[in-house]
Amino acid sequence: MITTDICIVGAGPVGLFAVFEAGLLKMRCHLVDALPQIGGQLSEIYPQKPIYDIPGYPTINAQELVDNLLKQIEPFNPGFTLGERVEKLERQEDKSFIVTTSENTQIRCKAVVIAGGLGCFEPRKPAVERLEEFEGKGVAYMVRNPELFRDKEIVLAGGGDSALDWTIFLSDVAKRVTLVHRGETFRGAPDSAEKVAHLAESGKINLILKSNITKINGNGHLNEVTIAGADNAEYNINADYLIPLFGLSPKLGPIADWSLNVEKSAIQVNTFDYSTNIEGIYAIGDINTYPGKLKLILCGFHEAALMCQSAFKYVFPDQRLSFKYTTVNGVNAF
């Protein structure tokens, strides 16, 4: 079990800056992020885009801002758990929390700060009845272990790059691969689209265009999908597995079940200290909401500073906080 003062959910710019503000008050931090790298949206989505509204920087590339923030928090030696989604939060008798991730990493902390930005990116699901019933029983949204599909009948659905790439890859593994795409053409990577067309011509895969999956069937495990073409006529094909690949969409995720007050997918906070309705849990950055909220990195930085002044009372209940400027005190590492 990892023990720390503050567990920060989300390693984007606001979560990173919270480590700095916490460090000035001698509070140690551990960050958890569902993405495999540090930086949140900035690194994942637009690393090379310039940002123009960071005070003191007329322009800075998103990744450069992340790198600078990492350098800024280096003296405070934060811990990181990456590629794991925060799942569970349990309050202990001594009022501390235990945060558990999707990979069962546990973090014991005195305060929790949710700096989750857009939320975590989850697979977009098509509107097909009984889909959730067969999740883990033939319906998979990603290919974790290709061996699972060896000598099986696989149906993939989607028209993006990942649908093309996995069709090509699985054509060598599975007994039969069928790719169902609602469009007539693929606008993704031309190389992959060409390869898929070749595989279809040579009969190695079954390519079904201008069609959608409308139903799925099975008895305990998936065994059949129903496909409708442009004329809406339906027919069934055998399927051991269905892999819908319709990209990722940001969702609040398991945090939505933590009994926090949520409004329009954002966590309501008190602007006095960005605390939530649950004592010891704060929300800062794009994931929170309050009257006048602006989703700006610089607002998240401000929220991080005020949050830390308040979180101090959970980390050091017996101490009085005295505010000190870095220009007077410097940055004292630990």
């Binding site: 509107a127 993006g160 790059d161 609602r182 693929f186 606008r187 690949l245 990209g247």
Partner: peptide, 11 residues
């Protein structure tokens, strides 16, 4: 926009 719409199930 093309890339994003291509991934949607209901486009």
């Amino acid at each position: 926009e093309i890339a994003m719409l291509d991934t949607l199930p209901d486009a």
